[in-house]
Amino acid sequence: MSEHKRRRIYLMRHGSVTYFDSEGKPYLPEQVPLNELGREQASAAGKVFAAAGLRFDRVIISGLPRTVETAARVLAETGQDITPEQWPELVELRGGKLSAIPDEMLREAFVGAFDGVVPEARQFLGGESVGQLMDRVHPAIDRLRAQRDWDTVLLVLHGGVNRAILSYALTNQRIFLGNLAQTAGCINAIDVGDDHADWVVRMVNYSPLSTLQGESRHTTMEVLLEQYMKARRR
């Protein structure tokens, strides 16, 4: 068999955060830190990497606090002294003003961007569209692949961004597969070759704290919709 050198991308979603208070009022998504469960998830992922003896050449985050803290906890477990690079084009889908969304449009606004093969014009929470997300995520991943100074890289990003990357890897096309689950703190593994079409998706949505994910059959956005509805019902 001829040598076929591929490089490895470990793609994580940040650990769990609390987006709404007990009354359903939203916190600023740009500022929320990890909650207790999120900290446990991040450390558990780090322990998995450490147990496998994995060493990262680079670590890339979006720069939002929840990715900063997740990456820091992973690196604390692996014992690597790496300064994560902040790539702001990899921040999560940007929502609009929740109070401006009519009641009858709330469900679509929350869950529509993660439902099957998603049309590019579909907006997330009345804000950024799926097409706009791919406009910034795909070129960033292409740029990373073109850089030759790494063999193994860790990306700590977001549920929507990860779906855009995984969809790109699975299809090599401009397609967004919304129903690719991304549990908080999960790990995905993607191998990439020199050819643009050379993607191998090795692992998707591995959750070290819940390998069988039996706690819930709801999506993250379904849970968040129910939390927000508390405020709407008042």
Rank of each mutant, 00 (worst) to 15 (best):
K25I: 00
Y19G: 07
F56R: 15
Q31W: 03
E30F: 10
R8K: 12
D195G: 02
L106P: 03
R148Q: 06
H218C: 09
D103Y: 05
D81G: 07
G46A: 09
A109E: 01
M1I: 10
G214S: 10
W150G: 03
R234K: 03
K97F: 04
L133H: 06
Y27D: 05
T83G: 03
A121M: 12
F114D: 08
T171Q: 05
V117S: 06
A146F: 00
L125M: 15
R6I: 00
V32N: 11
H138N: 08
V161S: 07
H138S: 06
T211H: 10
Y19R: 09
A50T: 15
F20M: 12
E3W: 04
N205S: 06
S22R: 15
L106M: 14
L155D: 00
E128F: 07
Q80M: 07
S129H: 08
Q227C: 05
T183F: 07
E104W: 01
F124V: 06
I9C: 03
L28K: 09
E226L: 15
H158G: 05
W87L: 12
V111A: 03
E3Y: 06
P88D: 14
V204E: 10
E89N: 12
Q132R: 15
Y10V: 02
A71N: 02
H158V: 02
R234V: 00
T220E: 15
E40C: 06
R136I: 07
F56A: 03
V48G: 02
G112F: 10
G79H: 02
P139I: 10
V117H: 03
A140G: 05
W199D: 03
D142K: 04
A109S: 15
L37D: 13
V91N: 11
T152S: 15
L133K: 09
R234H: 01
M134E: 07
P102S: 14
I190S: 00
Q31M: 11
R202K: 11
A146Y: 00
A169R: 11
V32G: 12
Q132L: 05
R6S: 04
V130M: 15
R73A: 13
A189Q: 15
E23N: 12
F20C: 06
V68E: 14
E89W: 01
G112Q: 11
K230W: 12
N179V: 01
F176M: 09
P84F: 14
R234I: 00
E23D: 11
E120Y: 11
E69D: 11
W150Q: 07
Y168V: 01
G160R: 13
D115L: 08
A42M: 05
V117N: 08
F176C: 09
G126S: 09
Y27L: 13
Y168M: 07
L155G: 02
S207E: 12
M1Q: 08
R232H: 06
T220F: 02
Y10N: 01
P139K: 07
R233N: 06
W199E: 06
D135H: 00
R143K: 11
R174N: 05
E226D: 15
I61K: 04
H4S: 08
V200E: 05
M229K: 13
E3I: 11
V17M: 06
V91Q: 14
L225W: 11
L180D: 00
G15N: 10
K97S: 14
L98K: 14
R136P: 05
